[in-house]
Design a protein around this nucleic acid. Structure first.
Lengths: 208, 208
DNA sequence: GTTCTTTTTAAACGAACGTTCGAGCCGGTC
DNA sequence: GACCGGCTCGAACGTTCGTTTAAAAAGAAC
């Protein structure tokens, strides 16, 4: 279905694209409204402020990702009863919603997701934590049950390694943008990248 | 030895600290010179521009890290003759110079290193790539020899996972700053964190 | 002490930023 | 036609940014 190109949606679209490319702080409202072909003041009319626009965009894009993660975890737990979830399944359910549009070269969604994790903006960090709180709580609990032989402090550390890999992958996107120019082969499709990250993270998280 | 607190070194120190905390774009020259207790114009006298300051700081802080990495790789290759380097040794030599001051709660060095990897500043990315080029070339070659059973495209992808873990660890630092509040246990010392990251990455890189 | 270079300083520059304001437009409803 | 609320528009607000200037201060050489 074709989404109606209202002023509000045009702003959201242009902002998402520019935020993904250059970050929030480096994208001015004048750039955004010019790209969206709307008036500068429209941002404050529809969102109140630049921070309001950022906040609405965070809600709009992260909510479905985290909802899909929780739904996937629900299904896994229902299927398995009380048994621990196999680590690769748990990781796949967590990582897949974020990597979903990774293979689409026109989608700015993955880089937007990744970039927002890296912004030094203090308020933004708080908004992100609100959105992520239930996901963090439930997945950390599930990981503890899946990896009972790993001490909790070590598990936290290794989980941050896993999250770091995901964020770096998303923020670099399909282009060779990282300092190491070794991000993602151009031919890689979304499913292959997902399975690689799942396999890599599962091996690292569970190793003795 | 006590480093002489000249105007130039005071600027470099204040800039490094502020860049580590809030990023390059969000740190104004007025903030930096005020923290350094020097005149605003001193930045342009000593560094030509804000970008000049950033560039000198990149050279100053990354050069020793990458030199140590290459020196460590030299020693490994000399010791082993032409044999492939055991992956944990290779990773340790790569990661240790960046994590060296990780256990020092007063050091901003790790977060500075991590933060600079994430800046959306286009020129900065180019400067970083110059500094990193020899490191990337030699370590990727060594990793190919250490992991002959892993296809090159997969190895590149997994290496970017490893780099992502490192950057995320550095940029979050010892505080629980990440969205997942699961970065590094407060009690963790530098050596333990290094060995965890080496073990995690080695398991992920080499897994079948 | 004088001269010349190096360094530091206060003040200002133009540009770009987020934000605000008020007039104007456009859809309905009486 | 008159009215009105939702929306858009151009123009300006005050602030902050990186940068520049020219003069004062400090230091070195003789």
């Amino acid at each position: 279905m074709e989404i109606e190109a209202t002023t509000k949606t045009k702003i959201l679209g242009a902002a998402e694209r520019l935020f993904a490319e250059k970050g929030v702080a480096a994208s001015s409202l004048r750039e955004i409204t010019q790209a969206a072909e709307v008036n500068l003041a429209a941002v404050h009319y529809h969102f109140g402020s630049k921070d309001g626009l950022v906040r609405e965009l965070v809600q709009l894009r992260f909510a479905p990702v985290n909802a899909a993660r929780l739904r996937g975890l629900d299904e896994l737990e229902e299927t398995l009863g009380g048994d621990p979830i196999p680590l690769p399944d748990l990781l796949r359910v967590f990582l897949k919603p974020a990597l979903l549009e990774f293979s689409d070269p026109d989608s700015v969604f993955p880089r937007f997701i990744g970039r927002l994790h890296l912004e030094p903006h203090p308020d933004l960090m708080g908004w992100m934590q609100e959105v992520f709180q239930p996901v963090v709580d439930r997945f950390l609990g599930a990981m503890e049950r899946s990896l009972p032989h790993v001490p909790k402090s070590v598990l936290l550390l290794r989980t941050s390694f896993m999250v770091g890999s995901m964020i770096h992958l998303l923020s670099c996107g399909r282009q060779h943008l990282g300092v190491f120019r070794c991000c993602v082969p151009a031919a890689a499709d979304s499913g292959m990248v997902l399975e690689q990250l799942v396999g890599y993270s599962a091996a690292g998280l569970a190793h003795v």
